[in-house]
């Protein structure tokens, strides 16, 4: 299970570039998102308005680990801190153990694929909750294609399956994960379905009905591409 960049086997000579445009209309050729509007470069990550003071855990984090917080954002009542991937473990440990933070509970760990963003394509989002202090914070790490993120399974064992799912769905690797393999998709699946450049249509019914015809059609498409 290499870090697949090709979306699907039927897609002929899938380009690694994020904007594939296979013009061939062969049954095997998968269409990219046709109607979707051009993807935005990323979430705005709005800065907190002037009147809203940062909560104690954000200021504690900024003071405790200087330079770890790249940006603080606030939107519809949720606080988000954006940290560099290299310091994620440090920040996680700090947020879990420091009195005043105590984010002992990892609610969710997921990723977002901002395909059109130039620098770093993925956001890893950790939704943390503090059971004793009843507060939430999101930690966000920006990751480039092919870049690995330190696994937080050592800090929150709950991250185990969640990181597997992110690996399965986005192809983001987690270094130090005890058991990084696919979880929802079959083990021999190619591609990572939640990426925005993953084709929305499969090979269609022809593959099921007569694989021979499907192979011929695919070959024709490849030939046409070569010419």
């Amino acid at each position: 299970m290499a870090d697949e960049q090709t979306p699907q086997p039927p897609a002929p000579a899938a380009p690694g570039a994020p904007t594939p445009a296979p013009k061939a209309a062969a049954p095997g050729a998968a269409k990219p998102e046709a109607k979707a509007p051009p993807a935005p470069p990323g979430p705005p990550d709005q800065a907190p308005p002037a009147g809203v003071p940062a909560p104690a855990f954000v200021t504690a984090l900024q003071a405790g680990l200087p330079g770890a917080v790249e940006q603080v954002s606030f939107w519809v009542g949720d606080w988000t801190v954006i940290v560099p991937g290299a310091r994620l473990l440090e920040v996680s440990g700090f947020l879990r153990d420091t009195p005043g933070c105590l984010f002992t509970y990892l609610s969710d760990l997921t990723a977002v694929d901002w395909l059109a963003r130039e620098t770093k394509r993925f956001d890893i989002v950790l939704c943390l909750y503090s059971i004793p202090l009843r507060q939430r914070v999101r930690v966000k790490v920006r990751v480039a294609e092919g870049e690995a993120v330190p696994s937080v399974t050592g800090v929150w064992p709950a991250a185990n399956w969640l990181e597997r799912e992110v690996f399965d769905m986005f192809g983001i690797r987690f270094t130090g994960h005890p058991d990084l393999r696919r979880i929802l998709m079959p083990d021999d699946w190619q591609g990572h379905p939640q990426r925005k450049d993953y084709p929305l249509e499969g090979p269609g019914e022809l593959l099921m009905e007569s694989p021979q015809d499907w192979l011929k059609a695919r070959q024709a498409a490849v030939d046409a591409d070569v010419k």
Binding site: A39, P40, P43, P44, Q46, W75, V76, G77, D78, S107, D108, T110, V112, V125, C127, R136, R138
Partner: peptide
Amino acid sequence: AGETYHAIEAPKGELGYFIASDG
């Protein structure tokens, strides 16, 4: 444009939704 996480107490536990909108 923006993103949020919201959780409720489903019968089985904390059911959360994380939605990012591009606006």
